[in-house]
Simulated assay, not measured.
Amino acid sequence: MDLPKNAFKAALNARQRQIGIWVSIPDPANVELLSNCGYDWILLDAEHTPMDSTEVIPLLRAAAPYPVTAIVRPGWNDVVDIKRLLDGGAQTLLIPFVQNADEARAAVAATRYPPHGIRGVSGLSRASGFGAVKDYTVRAHEEICVLVQVETVEATEHLDEIAKIEGLDGVFIGPADMAASMGHLGNASHPEVKATILDAIRRLTDLGMPAGILSADQEFLREAAEAGAVFIAVDLDTAMLRRNAVARREEWR
């Protein structure tokens, strides 16, 4: 059995735009439906939902038959959580709330086996095909994609150092927490917040680091794409469900 290829990582390396959707409803049928909609990637959010590593695995299985990359966001930059998700078969992780180069370096180290990191070794995990992938421990890093999330003004001040961390594949800018850190809690559309995010994307692009973003504001996403964003989440499952449910209700009221 060959080591599964990570199409998303390859696309980022080639600077090919990747369009994704956020998944907050932890149901395999929901993931299967969205995986069959033609997106390049889906984000399984285990930070702001009750999902844990055992609940993520059925979602990874639901996405597996489709040509989509399932990215997992753990609850924190935690070596144990990262280890469990990787052993469960996740190949791309989005690590939240990374503030500086040391935290970005720690995130990468958690995905690497010694001597290049601190990932614990399990030879019979789902990630290794339960032992069927030849030389998994030697080659796993080749297809593991590490993304970190910059979510505060403080973190943007360290973008240059973060972008230089070896093994880092992309930096995602989190609008909601960025807005909160700027004193605009609940207003990610504030002009100051948008300007800060677009500036961060341009800086990352100049540094040669793929930048990512999530927003339901399609006009802002187009600005982000023009600024250089490579991986772009264009909506959230919960937002889409509510928005369309309310719109249909209004048609009939």
Rank of each mutant, 00 (worst) to 15 (best):
P26D: 14
P26A: 11
D27A: 14
D27L: 13
D27H: 06
D27C: 09
P28W: 10
P28S: 08
P28D: 11
A29T: 15
A29K: 13
N30L: 08
N30K: 10
V31H: 00
V31Y: 06
V31D: 00
E32S: 13
L33E: 09
L34I: 14
L34C: 08
L34V: 14
L34Q: 06
S35L: 11
N36T: 12
N36Y: 08
N36G: 12
C37L: 15
C37G: 13
C37A: 15
C37Q: 15
G38Y: 10
G38T: 13
G38N: 14
Y39E: 12
Y39C: 14
Y39M: 15
D40E: 15
W41S: 06
W41E: 07
W41Y: 15
I42V: 14
I42M: 12
L44N: 02
L44P: 01
L44Y: 03
D45F: 02
D45G: 05
D45S: 07
D45P: 02
D45K: 09
A46G: 11
E47R: 00
E47V: 08
E47F: 07
E47Y: 03
H48P: 01
H48C: 10
H48V: 09
T49H: 06
P50M: 13
P50S: 09
P50L: 06
M51N: 05
M51R: 00
D52S: 08
D52H: 10
D52M: 07
S53A: 14
S53T: 04
S53I: 06
S53F: 05
S53K: 00
T54Y: 11
E55W: 11
V56M: 01
V56A: 07
I57C: 06
I57E: 03
P58L: 05
L59R: 04
L59C: 05
L59F: 15
L59M: 12
L60S: 04
L60H: 09
L60V: 13
R61A: 08
R61F: 09
R61T: 05
A62I: 13
A62C: 07
A62V: 12
A63D: 03
A63H: 01
A64K: 03
A64L: 10
P65S: 09
P65A: 08
P65I: 07
P65L: 11
P65F: 08
Y66K: 11
P67R: 11
V68N: 05
V68D: 09
V68W: 02
T69E: 10
T69H: 07
A70E: 03
A70Y: 03
A70P: 06
I71P: 01
I71M: 14
V72D: 01
R73V: 04
P74A: 04
G75D: 02
G75F: 01
W76S: 14
W76H: 13
W76V: 01
W76T: 08
W76Q: 04
N77S: 07
D78S: 04
D78T: 00
V79K: 00
V79E: 00
V80E: 12
D81Q: 13
